[in-house]
Design a binder for these strands. Structure first.
Lengths: 331, 331
DNA sequence: CTGAAAGCGCTTACAG
DNA sequence: CTGAAAGCGCTTACAG
């Protein structure tokens, strides 16, 4: 491996000068600079960023703690987030929630001296929040946020769910099912509130039995969907608190031989890419997911570079996207 | 930030001893060790991995250079790859192809002293191959491989496409269209060969006009699909050289008011998750994608840790998955 | 404008 | 078993 010392020797200058042409080129006389540059080229010298990190006390890397990519929501955000980070000169260390004990992960993240952390799967009461706060490096939450606030960019989930539920109600549906993740995540918490609020607005506030809180995993969604449709009076519309869940519900419904929306209406939330496919055409609530991820990264880097002050808290407006899985009940 | 020196001072030992309890605990007397451990705990000491990397000359991180997640294929591999890396104690630095000049990326990857590199989007003639070889660190290719070989785990793409094409031919189809990525990627190259070979086996070898090489992007796939179906004699079956392309083709067909498979058969390749959805049910060729990614990571780490010798070259057997988008022509 | 030197936080021979 | 010391490859005051 060729080091700055090797370059210095060959160029007949001190190692410090080599370092300077990299970090503060104007501080070295142009003749010297040219020579050093030439030698670097010749020797194919690349600075050791690890060594630089040690002295600079920053690594130009951010850690991304994401939910599993099995959930399409996280997929669409991660792509744009990493790309934005790259374009702003940051590397991205990616970890998925659920693998390994989080504590092990934390030690390696901390030990690696990342400059900032981006979390897309923060729980509402996660002790991680306080832990991270104690580290003294910037972190930002996207989509899900902690009870204590901090930095985040999220959707207005309450409004989103109200909008969606209102749409279903206006279609004439009165027997609804709202399948919501029981995970202690702000998204689900708030979406549940939004649903209740929408019912309230039409005087149906005590219909709590419409709400089905479950583990947001495939098997549970499938089970619940089957159970619902086997009810003596099955719902005429099912609202899922995420597109990932709605996709599973649709899969289940179809495999039961039921048609959507003819036999039952269905809606999701998040507007992940596949929902717009002609074969799916799921009614949902839009997020501008790419921009949510990008906003979060942008803010995080601004925080790191102290271009902005904490807390940065951004709430995005939802947009109802009506497609083919919801229709007027009085068909 | 608390360092090993701080711990040493408080514990009344030398800094070297602190380091030893971390790296070679048995070499320090149990009494001393306990005390040091206790102080570490008290002070919440976490070793600086950057400093360690500098002296150890390894970082316990691998770089993952992936194709965009807009393509579902890369999504399913990346999740399992990162998780496997994590569980083997490696961090993953993720970069997406196409962003920024690759050269910039290379300098940062190289400068960061990753222990190994995993590429899922290597071109068949990519000069990157030689560049990486010159670095002297292990790298492995998955799915797509370079003309020169190296380490890889790939699908038997020729056989895969033969199998799939044979299936379509057996259904009675004689007017086929094979939409293949024109990218200089081994997958597309080999899939084209497989298609030709299958035609050859039924004596249709000179029907080169069945092959439509295009940029594997949404707009091109859509355009080609539309063009095909507007032919005086449109194909009775369209084979796409990836599920990502097939999904676009299906979307286009449906939006043209055509039905699959009634109006035209359709098949993809890769068996990405969504293809098994009841609303899609795409006939395709299976990959065991998770295992492909995991195998690649496993091999890479084995290579890094010198548990195995280069080259490791693994070719996975394909599996035909017949679903609802292909049917007997004589319906 | 440039060099000599200190220092970033570790690991690991080398002595004892 | 333990400490003192060298060294990993950089950056950046400090002198000159």
């Amino acid at each position: 491996m060729v080091t700055s010392t090797d370059v210095a020797r060959r160029a007949g200058v001190s190692q410090a000068t080599v370092s300077r042409v990299l970090n503060n080129p104007n501080s070295v006389k142009s003749g010297t600079r040219e020579k050093v540059l030439r030698v670097m080229e010749e020797m194919n010298y690349k600075p050791n960023l690890i060594a630089r990190s040690l002295v600079m006390n920053h690594t130009k890397t951010i850690a991304l703690l994401s939910g599993t990519l099995k959930n399409g929501f996280f997929v669409e955000t991660i792509d744009s987030m990493i790309n934005l980070a790259t374009s702003r000169g940051y590397k991205t260390l990616v970890f998925f929630e659920g693998e390994k004990e989080i504590t092990d992960l934390l030690d390696t993240i901390r030990g690696n001296k990342v400059d900032g952390i981006l979390l897309s799967a923060m729980k509402y009461d996660d002790p991680l929040f306080e832990e991270l706060e104690s580290w003294g490096i910037p972190f930002i939450q996207m989509s899900r946020r902690h009870r204590k606030g901090g930095n985040y960019v999220v959707l207005d989930n309450i409004l989103a769910t109200q909008l969606l539920t209102k749409h279903i109600l206006e279609l004439g549906h009165r027997r609804l099912a709202f399948i919501v993740g029981s995970t202690n995540a702000s998204t689900f918490l708030e979406r549940k509130m939004g649903f209740e609020k929408a019912l309230q607005q039409v005087g149906m506030e005590n219909l709590k039995e419409f709400i089905y809180p479950i583990e947001p995993i495939t098997s549970e969604v499938a089970k619940t969907t089957r159970m619902l449709m086997n009810l003596p009076e099955p719902p005429t519309a099912i609202i899922c608190s995420s597109d990932a869940m709605a996709l599973v519900a649709m899969d289940t419904l179809l495999s039961m031989g039921l048609k959507v929306p003819e036999d039952v209406n269905l809606a999701g939330m998040d507007n992940i890419g596949i929902t717009s496919h002609q074969a799916i055409q799921l009614t949902t609530i839009g997020h501008q997911m790419n921009s949510m991820g990008e906003l979060a990264v942008d803010h995080l880097i601004d925080l790191i570079e102290e271009k902005v002050e904490a807390p940065v808290q951004q709430v995005l407006m939802p947009e109802l996207i009506i497609r083919n899985t919801t229709t007027n009940l009085s068909k």
